[in-house]
Structure formats: structure tokens, C-alpha cells
Design a protein around this nucleic acid. Structure first.
Lengths: 259, 259
DNA sequence: TATAAAACAATCAAACACGATCATATGCAA
DNA sequence: TTGCATATGATCGTGTTTGATTGTTTTATA
């Protein structure tokens, strides 16, 4: 029996129920477990099915085939890092948003945690991060605006060529921004691409609000985005030392400790 | 019986009454109490049901039938419709793309199927559809460009206010476009929002290539996007009747039959 | 309120499914 | 035929799913 025959049989077996068990396939196809798994893997890669433990089913909205899934690898890993702190910070930051306000949100795993708490505020959000867009997508009331430009994969952000005005005539009272590290020099990002993207957002905002969990104060490597003097508010968690807290306040930054 | 099957059965059992008792499930599903509870817990975590003592019910009072929730947006439902035909059409259309060419792809479930076949062509793609963006994301070599604007949820497209130039100075030799229906009046879309989005793309393209499976020729309802005279190439499947094929050719459109 | 019955959550061991790796077989071209 | 690429099969360690058991919480009824 050839691969194409088995593929046909598999899709056929799923029929109208939309599911075949691995056992079922083992009985129908005269092939070894390994081969069956390989067939399923191939069909999934083609987007024709979605594998589940013990079998396979038709792709649905909840579980789109992997070809349609959004996943930045380093990003996904970083999401779970200090998750609890990030969630608390996200909640506290979202509380700063007035109903029906227009805001800007920079991409990042911490700012991402704001999104669930924006539901029902009917605000407008300008962002260049597709991760943020995806997170806001289910919230009916939230209006999402995007700048034009090229998509940068590593960071999943949209960025226009230098000098080009990519924002749809937008100015916002508040910008929410993440950071890879914070030190006395200011806030830093790991990738230089992020820096130029964030500089543009900063220029359009009246108030810059930085979200960073306390671990970000320990490292200080990366490209400098802006000095502490450009920051208006800093939202972080309880893990911050008294010393850093004082230096933040000395820089005339409003400090918010989440949770 | 596998987890996926049980989930389907549970949601089915809730049917229109919007409630299943635990007892009922115990009778229907051939599974232990522990497994049933686990299934319910999982479904609740996914937001598909709400557990109550002795059973489960639909999420909220004002709740639309969860069959919607299950299969998501109309877009997701439509993805698997005529999937084989759409995949064949997508492959044939992708073959029209020259290596390193800059093209535009309109949103739609048929154009979506082009994306897997664009891998390795190193082309630039301008699209206003986030579905297309997501599909192209894993392809390292493909450069993705986005226009600025507001996100329209039903269609998942980005659209700028009328009169505003939202495209990053872009002009392309080819536009790939889907359709809800095709008739002698031209091609039609279900939503008027799509029409204005597509009009802008058409104005920037030298050649308009329409992707539509043969079922699209049977209906003819919707907002008219453009007349047949504006179309240069039509890619469809073998299911088209000889009569329609002739009328297409009479309109001076190049006809490509996939697979 | 007191009591029994049902539903529930947590835990554990066994069965099963899975991916990775290596070995074998099959097909195809030189 | 030989050499090579691809497809298939077998094995093993790991992770997931499942049903049984236990003890706790909730509901119904006297």
C-alpha cells in the first residue's frame, strides 16, 4: 500500500464524524505504527488534519492546523517566564487606561498581559505587534489600529522604512512599553529593530508607561531605547529592591507596584 | 472512545436545552466518572461550557449557541469547505508567481491555500489579511508587507479610512483575489467592507488573478467588486461546467483549471 | 437541623500513545 | 548490477490518558 492510498483512507475514515482513532487506523491500514504516525504528521503539515492524542480530527477554529498557527519561538518561551508577576503588572497597567481612550501598546510578553484586562473598556489600541493584535482580537469592543510596513519575524512586529510615516495619523495620551532591561542609563531592548520601532511610538505619546517585572532590573545589556527622563510611569512587581525603588523615584518617575 | 469524540458528544448532548446532567453523560459516554469530570474541566478551561453541580451548561445567559463557539467565525467554518478544490487551486495559483516577485494577496479561504506553496520563492507579499499573514509567517524567505489602518474583525482585514493612502508605496504586477460568487455581472463579495479593500488593491495591480472553486459560479449574491472585464486570469477546479467555461473565455479571461 | 446520597477533587498505578533513533526494505538512476 | 534516496519497520525512553480509590464538599430530604 502506498502513501497516497493511506492518505485517502485516513481522510475517508474521518468521514463525517471528523475523527479517527489511532487504533482504528491501525486496523484499517496495513501499516506499522511508525508509518501511520508519519502519515498523520504529513497530513497535519499540509493543514488537512489536526493531530490529537490518540488520533486525528478535522481542523477547526479552536485548533487550526499548524500552518495557520502563530508562534514565535523565543517569544513563546519567554511568555511563561515570571508569568505571575507579568500578569499582575498587566492588570495594574490596564487599570491606568480610561474607558474609550486611545492608547499605544508596544510588543512584549509583559505588555501582552495587559490585553485580557482591556476587555470592555472600548478603547482604541495602536500597536505594531501581531502578538498584541492576536490577544486583542477576541475583544469585540476594542478597536485595533496598525501601522504599515514590513513584518519582522523575530519580534513579530510591523516596521516601516526609516523616514516613512507609517502611522495612520495617530497621537495618543499614553504609550505602554516593555523592556528587556532597565538601568540607570534607561530602558533597553535586546534587538535594535525594536528600538527604532519604539522610538517612533515614544514620539507620538504624551505619557510613557513602562511595564517591567523586577528581574529586569538585574541585567543591563541591550540597545538603549530611551533615558529614564523620558519615562513617566513605571509598573513593576513587589520583588524590586528598596534601593532601586528609590532611584526610580529620584528620577521623577511614578512607581506602581502591582498586586 | 477518545477525548475528542467525548467532547463532541458532550457538546452535542447539551444540544438546545443548554444543559447536560452528569448522569446523562455517564450513560452516553462509555467512560469512567473521573474521565467525564476531566473532560468537563477541560471544556470549561477552554470556555466552551460552564460546570455546575451535577452537570454543565452553556457559558452565559445571553449566550449564542456554542456550535458557533465551537467552529468559530464564519471564516473558520469556511476553511474546510471544498478544501481539496481550494488546495488544488491554491497550488495552481502559486505556480503563477515568479521567484522574487512582489505580489498582492487578498484575504479569503481560497487565497489562503496559496500560501503553503509560496515557500522558497522569496517573494514579497502585500496583504491586508491577517489570515494570510499568519499563514506566511513560518516561511522565512517570504517578505510580508502590511498597509496601515483599522482591523475589521469579521473579515480579519486591515482597512484605512477612505481617501487615506495606507499602502507603503507599493505597486505589484499581480493581484490574487478570492470571491464569494461569480456571475456575468462580475465577481462579488459577501461584505461591502471587502469591496472597498479590494478596489484599492485592484487599482495597484497590473494583472488581476481570481481564485474561485467551481461552487462559486452557482450563487450570485453579494456586493459587486469588479466586472469580468477587469479580470485577467481565473483559476478554478474541474467542477466547472462547459457552459460557464465558455462564457469566461468569451469575456477574454485566461482560464486555468487546477489539478 | 441532622442525615444520607450524590457529586466532587486529589492521588496513584497501569495502559497507551508518542517521538526519536536506528535498522531494514523498496524503488530508481547510473 | 551498484549506489543512492526514500519509505517503512522495530525498539526504547518519555509523557499522556485513563480508571480505581480515597476522602471531602455539596445537595436533597426527613
Amino acid at each position: 500500500m502506498h502513501a497516497t492510498e493511506r492518505e485517502t483512507l485516513i481522510l475517508e475514515a474521518m468521514g463525517k464524524t471528523g475523527f479517527v482513532s489511532y487504533r482504528d487506523l491501525e486496523a484499517r491500514l496495513d501499516a506499522s505504527p511508525a508509518t501511520i504516525r508519519r502519515d498523520l504528521a504529513r497530513l497535519e503539515a499540509q493543514g488537512k488534519i489536526v493531530r490529537v492524542h490518540g488520533g486525528a480530527k478535522w481542523p477547526t477554529a479552536d485548533e487550526p492546523p499548524p500552518s495557520l498557527r502563530l508562534s514565535g519561538t523565543p517569544f513563546d518561551q519567554s511568555i511563561t517566564l515570571n508569568l505571575a508577576a507579568k500578569q499582575a503588572i498587566g492588570r495594574a497597567a490596564a487599570a491606568l487606561v480610561e474607558p474609550a481612550e486611545g492608547i499605544m501598546i508596544d510588543g512584549g510578553t509583559t505588555t501582552l498581559q495587559m490585553c485580557p484586562h482591556l476587555a470592555g473598556r472600548d478603547c482604541q489600541v495602536l500597536t505594531n505587534s501581531l502578538h498584541i493584535v492576536n490577544a486583542l482580537l477576541p475583544q469585540e469592543g476594542t478597536r485595533i489600529l496598525l501601522p504599515s510596513g514590513t513584518l519582522f519575524r523575530e519580534q513579530n512586529i510591523v516596521l516601516a522604512p526609516a523616514g516613512e510615516d507609517s502611522m495612520p495619523r495617530f497621537h495618543a495620551p499614553k504609550l505602554f512599553m516593555g523592556a528587556a532591561a532597565i538601568g540607570s542609563q534607561g530602558i533597553m531592548q535586546a534587538d535594535a529593530v525594536l528600538v527604532s520601532a519604539e522610538r517612533r511610538l515614544i514620539d507620538r505619546a504624551e505619557k510613557v508607561i513602562v511595564l517591567a517585572d523586577s528581574s529586569k532590573f538585574q541585567s543591563s545589556s541591550g540597545a538603549i531605547v530611551c533615558g529614564l527622563d523620558e519615562i513617566d510611569v513605571l509598573v513593576t512587581d513587589q520583588g524590586i529592591t528598596q534601593e532601586t525603588a528609590r532611584s526610580i523615584k529620584d528620577a521623577d518617575i511614578e512607581l506602581i507596584l502591582a498586586q
